[in-house]
Structures are given as C-alpha cells and as structure tokens.
Write a protein that binds this DNA or RNA. Structure first.
Lengths: 194, 194
DNA sequence: GCACTATATGCGTGCCACGCAAGTTGTGAG
DNA sequence: CTCACAACTTGCGTGGCACGCATATAGTGC
C-alpha cells in the first residue's frame, strides 16, 4: 500500500528530526540542518520538504499527531458517563498510558524557536475535541461556544500540566498532574481549590 | 528619550507590516517582502531585523502587545470583586473598549502561515494573567496549577470568541461574544449551558 | 565640549522553502 | 504478461531571509 509507505516515511522524518533536535539541545536548533534530517531519515532533502515545510513542523509532528487523536479518545468513552468524567478519563488514558517521551517533550516546550509550533501542536487537539464534545451534548457549534471554549480550556490544561510535569523533577506521573490540572476547568467537578 | 524612540519605530514597523499583510490578503503573505515593510516604516531592512526576527512576528506584534497587558487590567480591578467577575470585567474592558481592528485581526487569524505566531500572541497573555490571578487568590504558582490553568482557559476563550466574532458577520459586539465565551470557564459562574 | 554608548545601516554569508522537470517505482487494465 | 499511467522521489536552480560583523551616526552624561 502506498499510503502506508507515505505514513512510514513521514514518521521516519519527524522522528529523525526530533532525535537530532534533542541531540543538539534547545540552544542549538539552528544547527539542525535539513540535510542532516533527510540523511538520518534516509531520504533526499527535497523529499523531506515534500512532507514538511519547515524543520519546526517536522520536529513537532509527533506531538501534533498525538494531540489530533484526543478527540477520538473522547468519542470512545461510554456515552452514559458525565461529560467531565469522560473528558478526564479520555485525556488521562490518552496521555497517561504510554507516558510522553519526556526528553522530546522537554525539547519541544523549552526551545523558544519551537514555541509557535509547539502551541500549534497542542492546539491541534481542539478542533476534533470540540467536535466530539458537541456531538456528545448535541449542540450546534455554530451558535453554542461551549464545545470550542471547553476544548481550548482542555488543551490549555494539558499544556500547563506538561510544563509543570517537565519543570519540577517530581515523582508524580503525568496522569496525576494532568488530572489535577483538568479538575480546574472541567464542568461539574469544581473542587474548592488552593 | 531613547526608549521612546525605540518603541515608536517598533510600532511603526509592526503597523506597517500588518497594513501590508492586510493589503495582500491572507493568501499572499509570501508577497509581503521585508524590504516593503522596512520601506513603509521608513527604516532600513537591516533595522527591521533588529526589532523582529521574522515577518510573522512583526505582523502579530500589535495583538501580542495587547494580550500582554491583560494581566495588568485584572490587577487594576477592585480586590473586593469575586475572581470570576473581576476577570470577566477586566477582559471585557480590555478587549471591548477600543474594539479590536476587525480587518487586522481577521488577517492574523485566518492566515495559515500566521497560525503559530497568532497562537503565540494570544498565549502571551497567560503569564502575566496567571501571575495576577495568583496574587489575587494568594497561592504559590509553583504548586497550585490553578492560576496557570485558568489563565490558559481565559486566553483560549478570548481566542475562540475572536474567531466566532470574525467568522459570523453578526451584529453582536465583541464584548458580548467574549462575555458568553468566558462564562463557560470562569469559576462560580457555571450556567447550565446548552 | 568631549568621550562614550546606543542605535541605524551596508555588506556578505549560509541556509531554506519551493517551482520545475526528469527519473523511478508500484499499479491496474487489456 | 505487458504496457500505459499515476504516484512518489530526486536534482537543480531561484528568490528570499535571518543574522554576524564592521562602520557611520546620533543622542547622553560628565
């Protein structure tokens, strides 16, 4: 199958890009040359550019792809579950199992040159997430802002949780931190905080 | 004063950049050359590059600067006000009075090449906002995620509200849309939605 | 008035994204 | 089985951009 091969090379390129970026460290992103990425992925530089239109995009593609699947995770929750619980469970399952690659994630989130692309990656989750929420509560996203606002809040919580989880070298699992962060924005789960 | 001149030229460059981008339209961002921006701002191309390290950054600087001041707006609210009300009032005042330049904002938010930088611009609000919230409720941001999560949710709500306000050519003021969006995430203002 | 520092500018360099066209490989119809 | 076709890869050339460095200029404090 051709599409299979396309996905394989795409992943090869993005993986190689992230690996090289990690090797050079947050400061030396400018030293990650396109030809290095292409060479590491076993393709020509021109082919790399057929898949990604910037090094940043290639480096963040892994996170971007993961975020895009969050909406799917929500859809697979039982419909009987209350919305807030379903979201929390979906997110924790999605990000908790197969804990994110700490090194790669830290690279992405601590490199200023990758800031915009990293935000794009997290924000990628919003559209499918909003669609899933809208379907779950059965509203028209054209007039009700709740699905999109909630999706943005969730994506933001995931991002904040990731930042916290990376910065303090605590022993908490990412799932734990994520759960605490989500509790602040999920509906009908408003703990008296602080 | 030297700093005053620096701010003036910075604003001149960003304004010129945004104006040219609007003229070319969302599709033709690649046609906005650096030398055009510099010429329109009355500086040399090299000087432009001393202020901004990319065209995208220059174009979005106006929105970025505005977002950065949102935290300040919250700090100037009376401390007696409940947090949710204070945030809503601060945001609506900050973005509602002097309604955002609809054309420029639409340009920024509908141009895919500007997506990352636009997200950076909105996200700029988060840090000062989180600091303001933390100061208001008196918690330590190092351990309590609430300020950062709430700040991210607010910034997301502003972004969603802006998108909605731009896309539908409705007669609602931005302040109205923003208020509706914020109501979905602000604490102790949880309307039975949908 | 003078030395000094911050800012503006010109020039040169390396790299990058992408259009274009040719080569290569897998695919489906007859 | 063969052949025509489509998808994918690759090489090459082009225009542009970010930035380091050295220089000119202008505003500042003693």
């Amino acid at each position: 199958m051709r599409t299979h091969n396309k996905l394989a090379t795409r992943e090869a390129i993005s993986t190689a890009a992230l690996r090289l970026a990690v090797e050079k460290g947050p400061g030396g992103l400018a030293l990650v040359r396109v030809r290095d990425i292409a060479e590491a992925a076993g393709v020509s530089p021109r082919t790399y550019n057929n898949y990604f239109s910037s090094r940043e995009e290639a480096i963040c593609a892994v996170e971007s792809d993961r975020a895009r699947r969050l909406g799917q995770a929500l859809l697979s929750r039982p419909t009987a579950e209350p919305l807030g619980q379903a979201i929390a469970a979906a997110a924790i399952e999605h990000y908790g199992t197969a804990e994110p690659d700490k090194v790669g994630l830290r690279m992405i989130m601590s490199t200023s040159a990758l800031e915009g692309e990293a935000l794009k990656a997290f924000t990628t989750a919003e559209e499918p997430l909003a669609a899933a929420i809208a379907e779950r509560i059965g509203t028209d996203p054209a007039h009700d802002l709740f699905p999109q606002v909630m999706a943005a809040a969730i994506a933001g919580a995931v991002r904040v949780a990731a930042r916290h989880w990376l910065n303090r070298d605590n022993t908490e699992s990412f799932a734990t931190v994520l759960g605490r962060a989500l509790a602040h924005v999920l509906p009908s789960a408003d703990p008296s905080d602080s």
